[in-house]
């Protein structure tokens, strides 16, 4: 995929004491809706800042639409739309003033590109004379997206656009992104919410500055190597530790209000969980096989990279 819209090659970046990104290689196709999924501190924001020319990488090269982020940063600044993690709006300006300001710095007007933002902007247009600081989180998000879109960017960078926004607005927002993709805009989104991964064409799972895997959400889930059992009992507090003590255990972790149990044995019998817990005087035990999700994959990859790190230390 050498003619991708966004290509990162061996990108590394360190701050004074922290290694924020290590050897990142990603290639994103034109018109793709690509997600960077990972918890806080995974390096998502640093990655976005390198791609939007706000930071220079320590090593490696990155290109956006063929332009190098270091040498041709000016060209990228003409074609990129960027929505930083905090909604960077002028709180003391009204909705309309914010939008027309961001249009003006790209030498365009609201009228000229209204069709691009119409779907999104029509939600907040009734409040166009309200100050941006007085908007709800969801409305701020829509305004910030409108501002990032008003100059008809070819690539859109959205850094945690759904953080701090209610569930309904989050769903609406992803609907909008799907519509934008159908207009041919390449969209890069970062999010700490695992459930949003399924809404992307492809995702990169990130942890501690590493990309653990890149694939379509379905492929990641299908590649899940073992069965998952969702376990409950009356003593949820002790459940984690008690399950660890089963000999065939691969991993045990909380998942919502249940505990997910993974075994490395191919011939594992789920009844052994019940028996084991029973012997430790748990009651109301339920064990159900569960369909893997991106979050399960993420936990497994995280364990692998942790083991990898530990073995590295041992050497």
């Amino acid at each position: 995929m050498s003619n991708g819209a966004v290509i990162l090659q061996n990108i590394s970046k360190s701050y004074k004491t922290v290694k924020a990104l290590t050897e990142i290689n990603v290639s994103i196709a034109k018109g793709e809706l690509f997600g960077f999924i990972g918890p806080d501190g995974a390096g998502k924001t640093t990655l976005f800042r390198i791609l939007t020319t706000l930071l220079n990488p320590d090593s490696g090269t990155a290109t956006v639409e063929g332009f190098d982020t270091v040498k041709n940063y000016k060209s990228i600044r003409n074609i990129a739309g960027y929505m930083p993690g905090r909604f960077s709006l002028y709180q003391d300006l009204t909705v309309e003033e914010n939008l027309s300001f961001f249009a003006s710095i790209y030498n365009t007007t609201i009228e000229e590109n209204y069709h691009l933002i119409a779907d999104i902007y029509k939600h907040i247009e009734p409040f166009k004379h309200r100050k941006a600081g007085k908007l709800s989180g969801g409305m701020k998000q829509k305004l910030a997206l409108s501002c990032a879109l008003i100059h008809k960017p070819e690539v859109l960078f959205l850094d945690e656009p759904t953080t701090g926004v209610d569930a309904v607005s989050r769903m609406e927002f992803w609907e909008m992104l799907k519509k934008l993709r159908s207009q041919g805009i390449t969209i890069l989104v970062s999010t700490p919410y695992m459930d949003e991964a399924a809404l992307c064409d492809r995702v990169a799972l990130m942890q501690n500055g590493h990309v653990m895997t890149i694939d379509t959400p379905n492929a990641i889930i299908n590649a899940f190597p073992v069965k998952i059992y969702a376990v409950r009992s009356n003593r949820m507090f002790h459940l984690l530790n008690d399950l660890q003590s089963i000999p065939e255990t691969e991993a045990v972790y909380r998942f919502g209000d249940v505990v997910h149990y993974l075994s490395h044995s191919k011939t594992f019998d789920p009844l052994s969980i019940t028996r084991h817990l029973d012997s430790l005087s748990h009651t109301e035990i339920t064990v159900n096989q569960s369909v893997p999700t991106i979050e399960d994959s993420f936990m497994l990859y995280m364990r692998k990279s942790d083991k990898f790190n530990i073995s590295q230390h041992d050497n």
Partner: peptide, 13 residues
């Protein structure tokens, strides 16, 4: 402080 500088910098200004 408010992060709007980030957006200004990413613009062609």
């Amino acid at each position: 402080e408010l992060g709007t500088m980030e957006v200004l910098l990413v613009s062609p200004l």
